[in-house]
Write a protein that binds this DNA or RNA. Sequence first.
DNA 1: GTCTATAATAGGATAGAC
DNA 2: GTCTATCCTATTATAGAC
Lengths: 185, 185
Amino acid sequence: MPAPISSRKRVLDQLVGLFRRDGYDGVSISRISDVTGLGRPSLYYYFPGGKDEMAHAVLDAASKWFDENVAAVARGDGTPASRLKTMLVNIDRFYSGGREACLLNAFMLGETNAALSKPVRAAFEAWVDAFALISRDTGATKTQARRRAEGAVARIQGALVLARSLNDDAIFARTLRDIETLILE
Amino acid sequence: MPAPISSRKRVLDQLVGLFRRDGYDGVSISRISDVTGLGRPSLYYYFPGGKDEMAHAVLDAASKWFDENVAAVARGDGTPASRLKTMLVNIDRFYSGGREACLLNAFMLGETNAALSKPVRAAFEAWVDAFALISRDTGATKTQARRRAEGAVARIQGALVLARSLNDDAIFARTLRDIETLILE
DNA sequence: GTCTATAATAGGATAGAC
DNA sequence: GTCTATCCTATTATAGAC
């Protein structure tokens, strides 16, 4: 008998890939069924709340990833420069060097998804806070740190959009490098 | 009898508002019918190709707006600084100070809309070219100008995403100001 | 946990009258 | 140009067997 290749965790990972690429309205349960290899009823077994619950679960998973790989690093040991370096390396990996879209950006579309706007906003705030923490540790004032951090998050988002549209990874790589000097200055 | 408040041009303007906010998949013909006050068949009278044609028409309209209000200004008379200032003022107005989303970003979602990716990419290239032209006129090398222009477009896109999510117009305003120094340096 | 089968609805699109 | 009426398909979601 085949190994239990199916699990909620595995499905969740695939959902991240689908939602970040196609957005909430662009993903159908049928397509999720095709990609995961699970029948539609099985998906409702894992996510009784349907697509809505899937989207929230995906946001939770992404937030958890961010907490562990970015926010925790910002609060961790080492010089500000070394912590920032690790954060950026992890971010680069999460976005596959700029080839993958941002889930938060994808979930901002559509008024149907108004319920998603609160966790999306909270996620962006956490991003900003993480960068601001590094900036403060280099001596920036609270206001300076906040603005530089906002600039960093915005540049990452914008670089993802532009790099993906122009199919040019270098744009994303350069942006991450620029952020190092922006935050540490 | 009521005045002929309906016209293709008016519908097109409303379509821009709908698509930039909800994305391609997030907009239904029924909703378009509600918003425009036109019956579904009337929409197909103006756009026989259906939703697909509507999306392309909306992109064309946005590209035309950009050509007239940004690209033409970049090629126009005046100092680089004054031309850039006008471009940024027009961009600020188009995005209502950062409260309205970017159509190009919205149209990047979904594999269904693969046909849209070519015009979207062309539009981004035109954006970059316009800023690069200003930068070159201030003495930057071709490579420098290109990179600064990419940075400017990315920052605008990212600022729109972040400003809308955090509901903070100031982020967008600061970004436009930063771009002035970025391009003119 | 996963399936087959099916309900119920929403979506895109068209025919044909006026 | 705009409408009523309609078609067909896709979509979300559930019932119930295994």
